[in-house]
Design a protein around this nucleic acid. Structure first.
Lengths: 340, 340
DNA sequence: GATATGATTGCAAACGATTGCAAGTTGTTT
DNA sequence: AAACAACTTGCAATCGTTTGCAATCATATC
């Protein structure tokens, strides 16, 4: 590996005794150039370890071959959502993008500018945008929808197609979770989560669907507001149980993190899980299998999600019509909801 | 937000009745330009929502203002290390880079090219590189060290400064963990981890330090090889306990994930934690506090790590001399190692 | 009133690739 | 031998900024 190697296309052309135009075409394997010439130029380029200057290329072609990914971190809690889920979907997106020859620019909403249209698109940093997590109803995304920026959002479809979303079928997930608890004999099931969050709202609807389908009443007193953290899962459940509702027999938590926090409280109180209270989470993070009792949950297919996000976005960039899509979810039954 | 706005510097210049050179200087607030003119140009630029085309700018200035971050995922296990730790450090790096006006290009080692020098540096995609995790002794990094690419690695200092590393003081971490177990009365402490991994090797040294300091023998039979997963933690501990060593009384696992897997096995076997076997992990992931029993661990200061990585790399890019650095670690004592 | 001085501005050449079009080559046909 | 088609190649413009240097202007000095 040589240190300074400021080879330029012109240098290669000179070495091969052709014009830069021919050299350029030869390197990109343009069939208009004679095979011999192509081979020659490519050989020389390789010998001299020549790499195209992508900046110049971008300028000329007006394509960046770069996608920006914005991770929406919850602002209010200050802390990072260290959702293992996030890491996984990011990894898939990164791999999928490189597969298609794109680079990935990553940013969080913490310190970065919020005028994504200007920053990434107008200033030609990226050809498109992937936004992970709508969080609570977000105006920045709405604004983007009125621009010509190609982008796609991981989350829930809202506002009928003002923009394209890919996400798990949260409503079905909620339904499956609660249906499962009901099958285990639960009658009074608490819902832990914050319905101001778009995806959680869908899970809440699924929760209601399942109760209704089983002819069980929907008690709004059973809705326990909690952020996406174990801390909140622990303390909000404690507060709830202290004040009221001594005959709760099931809990549907909208994330595994919340569920684990809640479990901890139940364990401390020596409340029998699952027989006195059964509990199920959402996400299937790696830890869920390894807690005691192991945690039942709704698994999202993050890998498929990441791939789909990329596929849809690239379609959009190529002006092809696309639709929002829902990904299937499934129940993973473990000890926390398996009554004997 | 207007749809098509192909404003170019020349357009702004024309509108302001100045040359493009003046416009360019005015926008960058060059004091050589009269204050009046600067104000005028800047006002017009803002009015027309003009954004500099960074591609052209990069080409001209030969600076990309972009840093590439490579996340080394373990290849052999196939699965993503969904280390919450990774997400956290990535977040900090992203925020810190934007603070200094840099963009962040993210890539994993899974599908991407491995010739980082060519791909990122020669082809002018990035000004420098941050590598997260050396993993097992890695030749690709060694190769980089012989180039002029500015880069810095999260990991352990090895091979005396052939390149710059930032990382936790893993040896001290290992020492503190084991010292703590000894203080709790443990005498025969197992080490769970794979010492082929650079950072783990350091923790292994720390393990030995602590035993030696306490005049306890180092039994190589107590080294249990395990990957960074809960699965491995579970199964490798099971295998170990089945075959031999019935009087183990402490476990130092090199990651919380491993520790949680091991805990699960102990729980299933109704082995009393911490009184029969005490256990401590490494990382302090969010879940550790919420398992039962809660997991003692060694906390790394990832936020400081992320900030330092960026700081050192930028120094390097500016040709300033830098040194590798170790970050302090601390014991977080919880139930899994608190004997009554 | 001529010239030196400094403050502003503009000219034009980069940066390094890509590409429409024209020009050159070769081979085929009548 | 002329004419034409089919291949190959090169010219030169272009993408949008930045910047060294020269040019201009206003003011101050003698």
């Amino acid at each position: 590996m040589n240190k300074k190697n400021l080879m330029t296309l012109a240098d290669i052309a000179k070495l091969a005794n052709v014009s830069t135009s021919t050299a350029s075409r030869a390197l990109r394997n343009n069939p208009i150039i004679k095979q011999n010439t192509r081979d020659l130029v490519q050989r020389i380029a390789k010998e001299h370890n020549f790499k195209v200057n992508v900046t110049a290329s971008k300028l000329r072609t007006q394509k960046t071959n770069t996608i920006a990914v914005v991770v929406m971190l919850e602002q209010k809690s200050g802390q990072v959502i260290s959702d293992p889920f996030l890491m996984e979907i990011l990894g898939t997106i990164a791999d999928e993008l490189t597969k298609f020859g794109y680079d990935m620019l990553l940013t969080t909403t913490k310190t970065a500018t919020h005028d994504w249209y200007s920053y990434y698109y107008e200033s030609k940093r990226a050809d498109g945008l992937i936004i992970i997590g709508q969080g609570e109803h977000d105006q920045r995304i709405e604004l983007l929808a009125s621009t010509d920026l190609p982008f796609v959002v991981w989350g829930t479809e809202i506002h009928k197609k003002s923009y394209t979303t890919i996400g798990s079928d949260n409503r079905k997930g909620g339904f499956l979770a609660v249906q499962h608890l009901i099958q285990q004999g639960c009658k009074r099931i608490a819902f832990m989560g914050d319905v101001n969050h778009n995806e959680v709202e869908q899970r809440w609807l699924g929760y209601q669907d399942a109760l209704t389908a089983a002819n069980l009443p929907i008690e709004h007193g059973l809705q326990i507001k909690a952020d996406f953290t174990s801390n909140d899962g622990y303390s909000k459940l404690r507060d709830h149980l202290l004040i009221e509702d001594q005959n709760l027999d099931g809990i549907f938590a909208v994330s595994d993190a919340i569920a684990l926090g809640a479990s901890k409280y139940l364990f401390e109180q020596k409340i029998d899980v699952p027989n006195k209270i059964a509990i199920i989470g959402f996400d299937d993070i790696a830890m869920s299998e390894f807690c005691s009792p192991s945690l039942s949950t709704i698994r999202q297919n993050t890998a498929a999600g990441g791939r789909l996000l990329v596929k849809i976005l690239l379609k959009k960039i190529n002006q092809q019509p696309v639709d929002s899509q829902l990904l299937d979810v499934e129940v993973i039954q473990r000890q926390s909801s398996s009554r004997s």
